[in-house]
Design a protein around this nucleic acid. Structure first.
Lengths: 203, 203
DNA sequence: ACCTGAACACCGTTCAAGT
DNA sequence: ACCTGAACACCGTTCAAGT
């Protein structure tokens, strides 16, 4: 897994091949098959590894709101540190131990917020889709920047041939080209946590 | 683009190759290079095509809340209909016309909600990350189900070796295995729209 | 202007053979 | 138990040659 992460982050989004894994580990590429059934199984293990890294040292906070913010920022930091690995593995459901630890940690916070049963599960899904989606968006941006050499390669190349067709985008074009991704994320997480607070059943 | 979408949905997530594109179009695979610089450019065009399909017939509603819900459901329906294409292209920033139409439609709704400048842009980012992230999550689930032949292949294979380590997941394991993805999504979208309402500056 | 065929370097995967 | 080397079918991409 160390070798896999290092290959991803040194050589980019599509870099994880059996050849490179074998070379990095000082073995033949086919030897890897002795330890993984195929490429999908390696990516599953990468997903588990990123969950492990994200959760390292995690403990629930006194306030459930702080727990959720902590968990959200841990995933963000992991996506920022390992964008190529994150872009390849954030939406793989492993069913493994570290994934379950994440699930359980989120469900614990929602339990403390007062949610039970299917309401807890719906809010868990909402939270985890937000975290993983934002993580992939960040990872995609970072990879695109790394390829192109530019900073913020996203929508900010705003220069349409007929700007009069997009008046609302035109009105905020400078803000579109220049915003802080981390601020957007913390605001997004805060919005969800506030919603969880407001909608929580009283107990 | 029709051929590309058809290949994706008939043969799966990794099916879009030059060989298959050529065959589907009754031409040699290398002829495709006359029309696209490379594979990345094809995927960009697929992303534009999915935006076009999503926006077909869209008009802003009287209430900005309804506009945002409409846009959110359109992206959802597209991801459901074209999961392989969506999984490959939802986070590609094309800078193209249809992407800009989406951006502009969201910004119009947020403008009507009272947001301007960087506040509009932050909320646009929040909304679009939610929509795209949920779309990729749906697409990944559907692809996994198609591969495995099962229904809901996600976290619902919940059967850890030591369930006592995950008490909060254990408490809702039946709900984890059996939830309605569309309901989760509509609730997620509603939560964001409510937040936009509550935080909107008064004008 | 558009297409074809051969070629290149590289994939994932399998498997008989080695130690 | 673990690794290697050869082989297979398939990639994306380039390019000279055709019409």
């Amino acid at each position: 897994m160390e070798a896999a992460l290092s290959i991803f982050e040194n050589f980019g989004r599509d870099a994880l091949t059996f050849n490179r894994l074998g070379a990095e580990l000082g073995a033949s590429s086919t030897a890897v098959y002795r330890h993984f059934q195929g490429r999908d199984e390696i990516l599953e293990a990468v997903a588990e590894e990123l969950n492990l890294i994200s959760l390292r040292g995690y403990e629930a906070s006194a306030r459930w709101q702080d727990s959720l913010m902590d968990l959200a920022m841990r995933a963000w930091d992991t996506a920022e540190k390992y964008p190529a690995a994150a872009a390849n593995s954030f939406f793989i459901a492993t069913g493994g131990e570290n994934e379950l630890r994440s699930v359980d940690a989120i469900l614990q916070a929602l339990h403390e917020a007062g949610y039970r049963g299917s309401e807890a599960v719906v809010n868990y899904q909402v939270f985890s889709n937000m975290v993983l989606g934002s993580g992939i968006a960040l990872a995609s941006d970072l990879l695109l920047e790394a390829e192109s050499g530019n900073t913020i390669a996203n929508i900010q190349e705003y220069s349409p041939p007929r700007p009069e067709l997009f008046p609302y985008a035109e009105a905020v074009k400078h803000e579109l080209s220049n915003f802080n991704r981390r601020n957007v994320y913390t605001q997004h997480v805060s919005m969800l946590i506030s919603s969880f607070e407001q909608n929580a059943p009283r107990r």
